[in-house]
């Protein structure tokens, strides 16, 4: 066996992160929170830059910074929509673009300092799987396992607030806390995925596997499994392709791979897809 060590790490990291994104993306898609994911990922950028300025390039600290900034962004969206008449879509647009701009400004300051260690920050914009080390993969594995465990522990509750929050509230479930728990899990997943897919395209990795999986199956359990699998495939393919050719950023490759899966699903899924729709209409037309 002559497997390149870096390539194995890249493939492993890509697969794990893809699976995690697909797993959490299922909830984001079903709850109609796709664009909140976009906002969170863009909002994380200044946090990464500030964390780097304060504490250097320890991956754990960078992720912590990303998480804090994303959290502030989410709170700001909530504050704008509750205290003004600006609607959620505009509030997300304002926060997303402002935080991203702040991040870019800070990154250009860091870049001009010209110390060699800044090289690691660019990967957060378009993603760079080639930079993945065994520590990163371990971190992803541990956090991913923890997230999966939490979701399984609260499976019934999360399922309930996803499909019928009013019923959950009526039955005395702490809907607000469960909402917060789920939002936090999704935010953690996004922050972890940033180094693979980048802040601009992370939303695609979150959404695409779940949308593709939704075309094939009709229960939450099956959807979450299939979505994780599809995310794993997309993450691995994108990471390996960009690992083999370092000129290409990882994020875009993963998104293209995932989008191809979505296209196939939308067209070919039995009982739901576009081709099935055509076939059904032709059949009905023939009968009448």
């Amino acid at each position: 066996m002559n497997l390149d060590y870096t390539l194995v790490m890249v493939a492993l990291g890509g697969a794990l992160l893809g699976a995690l994104s697909g797993f959490l993306g299922t909830f984001a898609v079903l709850r109609g929170q796709s664009l909140m994911g976009d906002t969170l990922s863009h909002a994380a950028l200044p946090g990464i830059a500030v964390a780097f300025l304060l504490a250097g390039r320890d991956p754990l600290i960078l992720l912590l910074g990303a998480g804090i900034a994303a959290w502030i962004g989410a709170q700001m969206v909530r504050a704008i929509t509750t205290t003004t008449r600006i609607k959620e879509d505009a509030a997300m647009g304002i926060v997303l673009a402002s935080f991203f701009a702040l991040g870019i400004a800070l990154l250009s300051y860091i870049q001009k300092r010209g110390d060699a260690s800044q090289a690691g920050l660019d990967k957060f914009i378009f993603g760079q799987a080639a930079a993945m080390t065994v520590n990163d993969v371990l971190l992803i594995g541990i956090v991913g396992a923890a997230i999966t465990l939490i979701v399984l522990m609260f499976w019934k509750e999360l399922k309930l607030i996803t499909f019928d929050p009013a019923f959950a509230a009526a039955n005395g479930y702490p809907v607000r806390w469960l909402d917060l728990l789920l939002a936090t899990l999704i935010a953690v997943g996004i922050v972890l995925g940033l180094q693979l897919a980048g802040v601009i395209l992370m939303v695609g990795l979150l959404i695409a596997p779940a949308v593709a999986a939704r075309q094939w199956v009709n229960t939450l359990g099956k959807m979450i499994t299939l979505s994780s699998l599809l995310g794993m495939v997309a993450g691995m393919v994108g990471a390996v392709l960009s690992g083999a050719d370092r000129g290409l950023p990882t994020g875009p490759l993963i998104i293209v791979a995932a989008s191809i899966l979505v296209l196939i699903s939308i067209f070919f899924a039995p009982g739901r897809g576009v081709i099935y729709g055509w076939w059904l209409r032709r059949k009905q037309h023939g009968l009448s």
């Binding site: 898609v29 109609g32 796709s34 994911g37 939303v203 959404i207 949308v211 989008s259 939308i266």
Partner: peptide, 10 residues
């Protein structure tokens, strides 16, 4: 086939 917000995010 796809929700509105997901279509934008896709």
């Amino acid at each position: 086939l796809v929700k509105a917000d997901a279509a934008l995010g896709l």
